[in-house]
């Protein structure tokens, strides 16, 4: 509770300072909007439905992209963990691709798919798949040998051992992978929307900027940040924490 109070006071102070600095400095809203301007832009956006429409469009792409990324990542992760050859070849390629932000693929994606949804989803998939693959691989590689030995003495082997013991034992890593995949996918999605086409939050941000509507630009920025944090905090971190506790990987 203490912490929440501090956080609220901090945010309020930040807004007050921002508002007063802009007022004293006398900047106009097309250069540096005040918090009240941003709030109005936000309210307007929700009232006339544009932001809601954008949110829906962005989330639809995100969900499609993320679902593909998680499935692909799991499959690839299992492949890399099980096949030494795949790990040494494809595995090192994936590791080095990891250091390339997924958005740099956009020019190619637009060439391949056209300036449309598919190009954006491609960027989302790419952003999520790599990190999911790496975590899934680590999860399977790090299954405690004790679980495997115990299962073997109980007559489990082969596919049964893999499905009933190794996969569930890898769940904590998979959950972390999914959380990171979401973070990468969300960032990739926004970048791709700004650089390609709408509708979507990123597209509206660029549209507002073209028309010099800085209040809306900041409103969308805040929305992007809030959604990113809320999904991470409310969903992924909670799930991750529960799983870690249950799997005995964290002192409760």
């Amino acid at each position: 509770m203490q912490r929440t109070i501090k956080q609220i006071i901090f945010i309020v102070a930040l807004i007050v300072i921002w508002e007063s600095v802009v007022r004293i400095g006398g900047w106009t809203a097309d250069i540096m909007p005040k918090p009240s301007d941003v709030w109005q832009a936000l309210v307007r956006g929700f009232e006339d439905g544009t932001l809601i429409y954008d949110l829906g469009a962005s989330f639809q792409r995100l969900l499609i992209g993320l679902a593909i990324a998680l499935l692909l990542g799991m499959g690839l992760g299992i492949l890399l963990a099980k096949s030494k050859t795949a790990d040494e070849t494809l595995g090192s390629l994936i590791l080095s691709l990891q250091s390339v932000p997924s958005i740099v693929w956009l020019p190619l994606a637009i060439m391949w798919f056209g300036l449309n949804e598919k190009a954006v989803i491609f960027i989302v998939v790419l952003g999520g798949t790599l990190v999911m693959t790496i975590n899934m691989r680590a999860g399977i590689k790090n299954v405690s040998p004790l679980y495997i030995k115990a299962a073997q003495t109980m007559g489990s082997k082969g596919i049964d051992l893999f499905i009933k013991v190794i996969l569930p034992a890898a769940v904590p890593y998979a959950v972390t992978g999914a959380r990171l995949a979401w973070a990468f996918a969300w960032r990739g999605l926004m970048a791709a929307e700004i650089l390609s086409t709408g509708p979507g939050l990123g597209y509206t941000l660029k549209y507002a900027s073209d028309f010099g509507d800085m209040s809306l630009v900041i409103a969308v920025m805040i929305l992007i940040g809030v959604i990113g944090t809320v999904v991470d905090l409310i969903f992924f971190q909670r799930v991750e924490k529960n799983v870690m506790r249950r799997w005995g990987l964290e002192a409760s």
Binding site: L146, Y147, K149, A150, T153, A169, W247
Partner: peptide, 11 residues
Amino acid sequence: MVFQQAALFPW
């Protein structure tokens, strides 16, 4: 077999 650690499956 019973090991030193219980080796129960946490899931």
